[in-house]
Amino acid sequence: MRPNHASANNEFNKPLIPLSELKEGDLFIIREFRGCNRFAYRLISMGLYAGVPLIVMKKSFSGRMIIKSGVNSIGLGCGEISKIWVEKI
């Protein structure tokens, strides 16, 4: 995890955006988790670790999202998706 002010991936210099800004069908890679460590650890143990390619399957009006990695579909609440910073691919 990096400090909150980081908005670009130093390694690749590509802009990082919160997952909440993506729309249905967007492909992305998780780069950072912001917020509580346990939240980050839980996502990782569910297979959502940094570097794994994912797709936004569903985004609802209220901001909830279903993302998918391989065969793994995960539903995230609107509070959670703003804590995941991603790189669009």
């Binding site: 509580c36 996502l43 065969v71 995960i74 539903g75 959670e80």
Partner: peptide
């Protein structure tokens, strides 16, 4: 705080 909402949606 509320429990974070992260849920696996099985097939």
């Amino acid at each position: 705080p509320s429990e974070t909402f992260v849920i696996e949606l099985p097939s």
